[in-house]
Amino acid sequence: MVRRNEAKMNNRHQTKKRLSGLLWTLLLLTIFLAGLLIWTVLNIPRPLPSLSRETAEYLAMSGVNNPVTAVLLNFRGYDTMLEVMVFLLGAMTVWSITHAPFPARVANPSPVQATAVRLLTPLVCLIGGYLIWQGAYQTGGAFQGGAVLSAGVVLLLISDFIWVPRMHSLPLRLGMAVGPLLFVILAIWGVITEGSLLKLSPENAWAYLLFLEAGCGISIGLTLAAFFAGGRPLGDLREEPYKADQDDGEEG
């Protein structure tokens, strides 16, 4: 009976769907909503109000040369701080649900795959670091560089190396926390030196922002890879690193 249920679940995509009356009503309502939104977009009063003049005016005080990076990290730095916290909160939620589902028997990677990963990982670190650094001058910055770094870590995760599930989890946890921690330290430093949260003095802002971007880039890379792994690392901080015959103790 289990096999028949499984067969029915596997064939569900092959059954034909008939559009019922409810679905037609929903379709018509959605088309009406689309028409309403299109009419709204057509009637937006142009020219749109813009902040480009003010951004260009204060760009020299922000410590970077790119207007998008200046808005993201300096002028609207509070939003970015909350966004980095939301990122960490998402990782905590994913970790609280399940262990990372590594396969029970880890196979050795083929020589081609191992060589490719060994060649690509330093390149990924280099390109990610360059993207983080060049955010001050062109498009780039912590998020773009962090995404490239996370691609490198995901490459390590999917390449079936034996030592990856057995790594100690403390460097991973410290790396994930360094971005939000640097933001909070910078915010408090702004209160201490200038009197207001996240206020950076114009002559030192470039140094603060470079430091902040480096930390956030590392933490974004590790957190994105933790999202990909899909659960908390197998070695807990209280116990020893994961051994092959250790049992979860829970389902899922």
Binding site: L48, L51, T55, V68, V71, L72, R76, E83, F143, F227
Partner: peptide
């Protein structure tokens, strides 16, 4: 160009990934 919507989109992409 107006840089503020682009910064908001960066924030939005990160939140949607989470």
């Amino acid at each position: 160009i107006d840089p503020v919507p682009q910064a908001m989109v960066l924030t939005g992409i990160v939140v949607s990934v989470s």
